[in-house]
Amino acid sequence: MATQHSRSAARLMNTPAIFLLLVWMLVPLCMTIYFSFLDYRPLRGVYEWADGFENYARFLSSGSFTDSVVTTLIMVGGILAITVIGGVLLAMLLDQPIWGQGIVRILVIAPFFVMPTVSALVWKNMFMNPVNGLFAYLWKFFGGTPVDWLSQAPIFSIIWIVSWQWLPFATLILLTAIQSLDSEQMEAAEMDGAGFFSRFGYITLPHLARAITVVVLIQTIFLLSIFAEIFVTTNGAFGTRTLTYLVYQRVLESQNIGLGSAGGIVAVILANIVAIFLMRIVGKNLDN
């Protein structure tokens, strides 16, 4: 009796969250799907049904889509490579006995808490500016010609900025994972004469495999939606238009709602493919 009572109370307590999330997910998503089958261009007063999957066909066959997918892959791949490799190395370093370890940790983690618009603008102006930036000064100091980073190496520059923001995240999670490594196992391997690289390859890396997977998946989901960093640096110019940015431009800048919505659905599908893998890992963990 009491259990039944508390069980229905429990259901009642869970209702608001489920209801709100359901509305938040379903209503806009259904609207996007609906819009994706329209020829809807408010600036020209066009609002009619599109010809079947016309928007999808046009979006998927356009050169800008292919370019944006390539840009997205390079960007996400580059950031993942830098943050994961850098994160593993940094985590191993911070796991060593260091004087002032707490402070070093704080220094390393700090960039993650800087808001995206600030970090993008600080890097853009104070470091990458070809006239007054600190890099330009360094280049001149060593006798080189200053580089206009954001127009000459735009994708690299954005990869650099975003990696700076996400390196702390990877480091922090990998450090947490590394600290759960059994130190006796490590010492035993050392006693048996295993060198640094074989210890790393046979003990540390396998131990970190799961954490690395989690870092890769979570970062991918966040990185697929990079927006502010592109918005305030190149505004999508110089080949830095990612899929997210392309959809944003179609929807809010050129106001081709039908086409943009089809693009939005494509982005949702692509993100969900990554999400499935993440969910599987998280789900397994929930059972234990």
Binding site: W24, L224, G264, V282
Partner: peptide, 15 residues
């Protein structure tokens, strides 16, 4: 609930 977090914001920007 977690899966709702995976939806890219840009997919529902216009609605």
């Amino acid at each position: 609930m977690l899966s709702t977090k995976m939806m890219p914001a840009v997919g529902v920007l216009f609605p």
